[in-house]
């Protein structure tokens, strides 16, 4: 490396990784329920799909975290998305394919995927 542009490139490449450790109001949090019920229903592949998709699109300020049982075990895997300035959105019966769509539509383009939400499922 020699130039400032190279420095900036390294910064951009690493900034998301370190951003994980900073508390920030602007961040989007994707919370996957990974209690026994969630794991049994396939929460791990769903979570991995989210992580992969975020990585692939190099999204900043977007993190995947886990939580325990959300309480509606029959609708697992359940995923909650907290985007800045938005109410929490709860997606149910998630799959890795649905996860990709949620990232693209909701996280990237800000359009909630109504058909997967808990409101539609009930």
């Amino acid at each position: 490396m020699k130039s400032l542009a190279d420095l900036e490139a390294i910064r951009n490449k690493t900034v998301n990784k370190v951003g994980l450790r900073k508390e920030n109001a602007e961040e989007t949090r994707i919370v996957v329920g990974t209690a026994t019920c969630g794991i049994a229903a396939g929460a791990r592949p769903v979570m991995q799909a989210f992580v992969e998709e975020i990585q692939k699109r190099n999204l900043s300020n977007t993190f995947v975290t886990q939580t325990g049982c959300i309480g509606v075990c029959r609708l697992e895997p359940i995923v909650e998305v907290y985007a800045p300035g938005q109410e929490k959105v709860t997606y149910v019966k998630m799959t890795p394919e649905k996860a990709q769509k949620v990232v693209l539509d909701h996280v990237v383009n800000g359009k909630i995927v109504e058909e997967y939400t808990i409101g539609k499922a009930e």
Binding site: L7, K13, T14, K17, G19
Partner: peptide
């Protein structure tokens, strides 16, 4: 916050800017 043995993490926190 950062890994002190990884220069990339320092750069990510505006290091050397």
């Amino acid at each position: 916050v950062i890994d002190p043995e990884n220069i990339d993490e320092y750069i990510a926190c505006d290091g050397y800017k």
